[in-house]
Amino acid sequence: MTEQAIFQKLSEIFSDVFDEDIVVTAQTTASDVEQWDSLTHITLISEVEDAFGFKFSMKDVLGMKNVGEMVDIIRKNT
């Protein structure tokens, strides 16, 4: 999957989870999205795992600083 395709798919997932149109970039962080709290984070993680067919590690979940890092992890695992 190309990086562009991953961003595309993530934008869809984010829009769906947060129920608003969101275009994510590598720099997007939790503070950019109003509803992005620790609980929605769990939902988001689970949706991304299901969509890409792999599981994040605990370290991944706690360590991700922005969407760019999430994409790196996705690329490593798919």
Binding site: S38, L39, I42, T43, S46, D50, F56, M58, V61
Partner: peptide, 16 residues
Amino acid sequence: SDAKLYYIAKMPICVD
């Protein structure tokens, strides 16, 4: 269940 969810969020049952 998803072991990491319990450690991160105290959730014993996974989202799915």
